[in-house]
């Protein structure tokens, strides 16, 4: 399964819904969480495509992928997630750090 951030918004914003429209929190709750659950059900990796937007703040990515790690566990997320970022390849390492820094909340 593939999730494109540009289908959510061309101009992703900051961390929380309160910060403004198209936040990382909103992306996680509407797109990422459901997409991940569905791809796990289908025994496949979730592909998240970061290309095609106007740019990202660290807080957006940290909230979206960090929350995913908190919900499903960092290692499980890394095993079942593939990120595409051809326009800004440095996000790949950054997002891995965001995921590993979080602890699973049970």
């Amino acid at each position: 399964m593939k999730v494109k951030v540009c289908d959510f918004s061309k101009t992703p914003n900051a961390r929380y819904r309160d910060d403004g429209d198209y936040s990382g929190e909103e992306f996680y709750e509407i797109f990422l969480k459901n997409g991940f659950q569905q791809s796990v059900k289908n025994n496949e990796k979730l592909i998240v495509d970061l290309d095609g937007t106007e740019g990202y703040a660290t807080s957006f990515l940290d909230e979206a992928f960090g929350r995913l790690a908190e919900e499903f566990g960092p290692l499980y997320v890394l095993d079942n997630l593939q990120i595409i970022s051809n326009e800004e390849p440095d996000w790949l390492d950054e997002i891995t750090t965001y995921i590993l820094e979080r602890n699973e909340i049970k």
Binding site: A14, D19, E54, G55, A57
Partner: peptide
């Protein structure tokens, strides 16, 4: 509130002045 749509519009205008092409600048937007 933050306003990412507005900032992207202003960045696109600025690339027009600098490079004569209206384009995004993902790092500056971030």
């Amino acid at each position: 509130r933050t306003n990412s749509e507005l900032s992207s519009k202003l960045i696109r205008k600025s690339t027009k002045t600098v490079w004569n092409i209206e384009d995004k600048n993902m790092k500056v937007q971030g």
